[in-house]
Design a protein around this nucleic acid. Structure first.
Length: 407
RNA sequence: GGGGAGGUUCCCGAGCGGUCAAAGGGGACAGACUGUAAAUCUGUUGGCUGAUGUCUUCGGAGGUUCGAAUCCUCCCCUCCCCA
């Protein structure tokens, strides 16, 4: 992973960086000054628990935190238990669903557990923003709100777009930045890391810190990691690589991504250092087989989350099952109940729920995607024979089952 | 509070009395090809059925009609604009 930048405004604003625009170099200078203070810096990342799963995209800033940790700095992992109930409007195309606080607390537990795959728990301070945000009075909130010119709030790129496109935008969503900004102030942090979508929220933090007489924090942002299909990484697109994914899944999902997205993953999700990334990208440009690069990337990802051994196994299984189309080492066994013995394969697949319906099973057979012992069976009327020793059935490219006759 | 738009099959979205299981796109699945589960090309994509066919489906409940996703009534929900 490389990919972390000093509040790169071009990331946030695209081609239309507003006046000023030298935030980036200011951040660099500020960080240099802070490092010279000779004390461990407080570096914070805030995450709102809004679902059960963290994906590798969430881990980009976490890995950055780990680097700071390794250099002896103090890391603060902020659980946005309070903010999650409002919903961060950043880069959202529509209003977010509100979550209940109890639900959020449940999710938060699993978040920290997953974060510890990367962070050293003994050197991580975990905080919850409900501890202070919940105590603010209306007067406090008005004071915070008075720091920001309305023009600034409205100028946010994501709000602009939603207003232009006639999408829903509600007042409370503009308060989100205030909350996150107040977090930054309460945590007395020197540095905040996060995705570039946090640009505005981080700026709000600086404004609030300065308002209360503190030094503003340094903003470190990273581009958002795209999903394996190139669209925004999102569960609803099914293009997400989750931290909890089994090794082979993680490896497979990586191999399935379009070649064009390899550099983004090398940059943001891999553990490779800057030189190694450059080398890989150069090789791609020189016409190396993208598959080989992707294999190294897939191996690296699995290694980070599951260790060396699991990565090796995943790589082997991939070669065997996908490239050579051989059955994997372990094929799930399915016992065929007596009443399905002697029926057609169609009835059997539907009966065992290997296929959602008979029509679906027939379709698969007609298309040549149904194999018995690796030989396609296209006859939808074919009788199913399940010898006592069992038989290998394959549906489509990679769903294997060993059928055994039930007593 | 006033005015307007809309809720369609996994998603987006067309349809606006029969020719509608419902265009088109996306996704998914399969096949071909290949350098991979990439790209590209082709096909499939509600259930039951060998097929003819039949059953369920277009926010919900009723109604009109030989016949409704399409018309009417009430209800629920979403969005926009004005105040």
């Amino acid at each position: 992973m490389r990919g972390t930048r000093f509040a790169d405004e071009a990331d946030y604003w695209g081609a239309e960086v507003p006046e000023g625009g030298e935030l980036r170099s200011r951040m660099q200078a500020e960080l240099r000054d802070k490092l010279r203070l000779g004390r461990p810096l407080r570096v914070y990342l805030g995450v709102d628990p809004t679902s059960t799963e963290l994906h590798v995209g969430h881990f980009v800033p976490l890995q950055k935190l780990r680097r700071f940790q390794d250099q002896g700095h103090q890391v603060v992992f902020l659980v946005g238990d309070y903010t999650a109930t409002i919903g961060d409007p950043s880069e959202q195309t529509s209003e977010r669903k509100r979550l209940t606080h109890e639900h959020v607390l449940e999710l938060a537990g699993s978040y920290t557990e997953q974060a510890y795959r990367i962070l050293d728990p003994s050197r991580t301070e975990v905080r919850h923003n409900g501890d202070w945000l919940g105590k603010l009075s209306f007067a406090d909130i008005i004071e915070l709100a008075s720091i920001f010119p309305m023009k600034q709030i409205v100028a946010r790129r994501d709000f602009q777009r939603r207003m232009e496109q006639g999408e829903s935008l509600r007042f409370h969503e503009s308060l989100y930045a205030l909350m996150q900004g107040y977090d930054a102030y309460m945590l007395k942090c020197d540095v905040q890391v996060g995705g570039y979508d946090q640009h505005f929220n981080m700026l709000a933090g600086r404004a609030i810190q300065e308002h209360f007489g503190d030094k503003p924090h340094v903003m470190l942002t990273n581009p958002l990691l795209i999903g394996t299909d190139g669209r925004k990484m999102s569960k609803s697109y099914g293009n997400v690589i989750n931290v909890h994914d089994a090794p082979f899944d993680m490896y497979g999902k990586t191999m399935r991504m379009a070649d064009a997205h390899i550099p983004a993953y090398l940059e943001l999700a891999s553990s490779l250092d800057a030189d190694a990334i450059d080398t890989e990208v150069q090789q791609l440009q020189d016409g190396a087989n993208p598959m080989e690069v992707k294999k190294r990337l897939a191996f690296d990802l699995v290694r980070q989350y599951h260790g060396e051994a699991a990565a090796g196994e995943a790589a082997e299984t991939f070669q065997r099952v996908v490239q050579r189309q051989q059955a994997p080492d372990e094929v799930p066994e399915v016992i065929v109940p007596p009443h399905l013995l002697g029926t057609t394969w169609v009835d059997l697949c539907a009966g065992l729920e290997l296929s959602p319906s008979k029509a679906e099973a027939r379709r698969l057979m007609r298309q040549g995607g149904f194999y018995i012992e690796q030989t396609p069976v296209k006859d939808t009327e074919a009788r199913a024979e399940v010898p006592p020793a069992g038989i290998l059935v394959r549906l489509g490219k990679r769903r294997y089952y060993r059928l055994l006759p039930g007593a």
